[in-house]
Simulated assay, not measured.
Amino acid sequence: MDQMSFGDSEYASKRKRTRREVFLAEMEQVIPWTILLNLIEPVYPKAGNGRRPYPLKVMLKIHLMQNWFGLSDPAMEEALYEIASMRQFASLSLTKPIPDETTILNFRRLLETYELGAEILARVNGYLSRKGLMLKRGTMVDATIIAAPSSTKNAGGERDPEMHQTKKGNEWFFGMKAHIGVDVDSGLVHTVTTTAANEADVNEAEYLLHGKESVVYADAGYTGADKHSSRRGLDWQIARRRSSVKAMPEGRQKRAIEKAEKRKASIRARVEHPFRVVKRQFGYVKVRFKGLAKNTAQILTLFALSNLWMARKRLLAMTGELRPKVA
């Protein structure tokens, strides 16, 4: 039996649980560990003549915590030393070596090199579908801007060439866009694409469909998507532009249209929930890396994790696990 450090022993004896501890305890239960480990294991370094690699599950847990708490590689290393609950989640102890920032970086790059972000999302969604949590009868589509540093005060003296500027309302933004297709019934993300921020939302609409839906809900930014779609017989519920409805003469027809628009908006509102989880719960409001590829890898993982977070109560109910009390 491994000897516990004084800090770990002191942590184990405390009675109250923090919100972070409750969060990690819940995610420990709902993440399909075997599925994800089987995905990564074939490309994970094997023990050889050099330094023995950390167990794959340890590194995967560290990688997930990086995404949940918005930590850089150096900050993640420090957190493992300083925060006992994170150390415990990763099955680490201060009595043994803690993965350093280079080891943490190399694991992230491994996932990027083999482009496993998309497969992580696919396998999580397959797991949720088998649990009956993703029905795929309809899709909601939407996009959000992820800001990127606009400063040129860097080694290259230039902004990221793969990020672009766009105007939304009366404000200008520089960065990229995350486009998502969301299951109407569950509110879970089934498809993710990314582009520079200046790409029109309507151009990505076709790529956000999984092919089995019968109806698509979208805001006015997707006007015309139905005309450009290769799918026939698909019911496109696209919001009318407010100005066009407002300009209509008062009467029965306008009231009927306003009622229909209100219904579409009430259904479409659920598409915002994954964005809220990623941006508010996980704190992802600005790109961390340069270029679309690396940021796309992280975004795919974040939406896979947001699906598990949003479905956690139903998943915990299936396992009979009671939600831990928060301090």
Results as ranks from 00 to 15, higher is better:
K246C: 10
L71S: 03
K313Y: 03
I35M: 14
E204S: 11
R268A: 06
E261C: 01
Y127Q: 12
V30M: 03
P274E: 02
G187I: 03
V326K: 12
L305V: 01
R108E: 05
M163C: 15
T113Q: 06
M59Q: 06
T34Q: 15
L94A: 06
V184Y: 01
R240E: 08
S72Q: 10
A143H: 03
P74M: 11
F173R: 00
G211C: 11
G117H: 04
G291L: 10
A327V: 09
A311H: 03
V182S: 02
P55K: 09
T301D: 06
S9W: 12
V124G: 03
L116F: 05
T139I: 13
K212N: 05
D8W: 03
D8F: 07
D160M: 10
F69M: 06
E41V: 01
E28G: 11
I145L: 00
E82V: 09
T166Y: 03
V58Q: 13
A247N: 14
H190G: 08
T195K: 06
A205C: 13
M86N: 03
T194I: 14
L37A: 13
R323K: 14
A265E: 08
T223C: 13
L92F: 01
A155I: 10
G221V: 11
P32N: 12
L302E: 02
A205K: 00
A317T: 13
E171T: 02
L94Q: 05
A200M: 10
V287S: 06
F289C: 03
P99Y: 04
I257V: 15
V22Q: 14
G70M: 11
K14Y: 13
S129P: 06
G221D: 10
S91G: 13
A205Q: 07
L105N: 09
S91P: 05
A122C: 12
R288Y: 01
T152Y: 10
F6I: 07
T113I: 10
E26Y: 02
M318C: 02
R232A: 13
V124Q: 09
D73V: 04
G48C: 00
T102I: 12
G320M: 00
G320R: 04
Y207K: 15
Y54I: 04
P45A: 07
A143S: 15
A75P: 04
G224N: 11
S306G: 03
S243N: 15
L24Q: 00
D235M: 01
F89Y: 10
N125I: 07
T139G: 12
R130V: 10
G126D: 12
D8G: 08
G320N: 00
H190M: 07
L133N: 01
G291V: 07
I257L: 15
V245E: 01
T152W: 11
F89R: 08
E26L: 06
N198E: 12
T296H: 04
V30H: 01
V141S: 02
K313D: 14
D235L: 08
E162L: 10
A197F: 01
M310V: 04
S186Y: 02
W33M: 11
P32R: 07
M76L: 08
T194H: 06
D183S: 08
S13V: 12
A122Q: 15
E115R: 11
H228A: 15
E26D: 09
T223P: 00
S150I: 07
